[in-house]
């Protein structure tokens, strides 16, 4: 997993609420057996019509917007547990998703793939959307170490929460497998104690 500390980037605004995992990556793309290539199909049916024609109005296709930060409406990532959604976001080059609310499973999946979900207040989210509206090059700084997100053009900032273990994992590029395997003795002891 990539290491994550601080990111400064312009952002892509996606002011839609309840974006579900079927929109992030439609089910017909879930037939692959590795993790690569999902970025191409991120928001496939919003980016392209059914004949494969590009939809220029969609923010990801709008030349004004770019960057490794995606700013989305409330309740991002609801729906299925498919980690393919996180792989698609990551594969597209997004490092941070900002929203006022995230679905549980998506949040966990994102963190397990080095994508940081930053939950902000509804008013701060509105603030970001407005800042990007005014100037599509507006840069946003996400500082994981200090748990702060700042809109550089107006210096508005807010702090965000993250579980400190997950934070350490992200900063160091670790994941839970290594940790759990290292706990095997405790796990075996637990199994034994239950049988007795």
């Amino acid at each position: 997993m990539d290491k994550f500390t601080k990111i400064t980037s312009s952002a892509i605004p996606l002011a839609i609420e309840n974006i579900d995992t079927d929109q992030i990556i439609p089910a017909r793309f879930l037939k692959a057996t590795d993790k690569k290539g999902f970025g191409e199909n991120l928001f496939r049916d919003w980016r392209f019509d059914k004949n494969g024609k590009i939809n220029n109005d969609f923010p990801l296709n709008d030349k004004r917007f770019s960057g490794s930060i995606l700013v989305a409406g409330d309740n991002f990532g609801c729906g299925s547990s498919r980690e393919h959604a996180a792989w698609a976001v990551h594969g597209y080059g997004i490092k941070v998703v900002v929203s006022s609310f995230f679905a549980d499973i998506f949040k966990g999946n994102a963190l397990n793939n080095g994508v940081l979900p930053v939950q902000v207040s509804p008013s701060f989210l509105k603030n970001i959307f407005e800042a990007i509206q005014n100037d599509s090059d507006t840069e946003i700084e996400v500082d994981l170490e200090n748990q702060e997100i700042t809109i550089l053009s107006n210096q508005n900032f807010e702090s965000f929460e993250i579980n400190s273990y997950k934070k350490t994992c992200l900063i160091n590029g670790y994941d839970d497998i290594d940790f759990l395997v290292s706990m095997k003795e405790d796990i075996q002891a637990f199994e034994k104690a239950r049988v007795e």
């Binding site: 999946n109 793939n113 497998i177």
Partner: peptide, 21 residues
């Protein structure tokens, strides 16, 4: 439900690292 990273964790350890909901 769990994501694929967690599927791998359960394969590896029959356990998950979680915060109680």
């Amino acid at each position: 439900g769990i994501g694929t990273s967690q599927v791998a964790q359960v394969f590896a350890s029959q356990s998950l690292l979680l915060q109680k909901p």
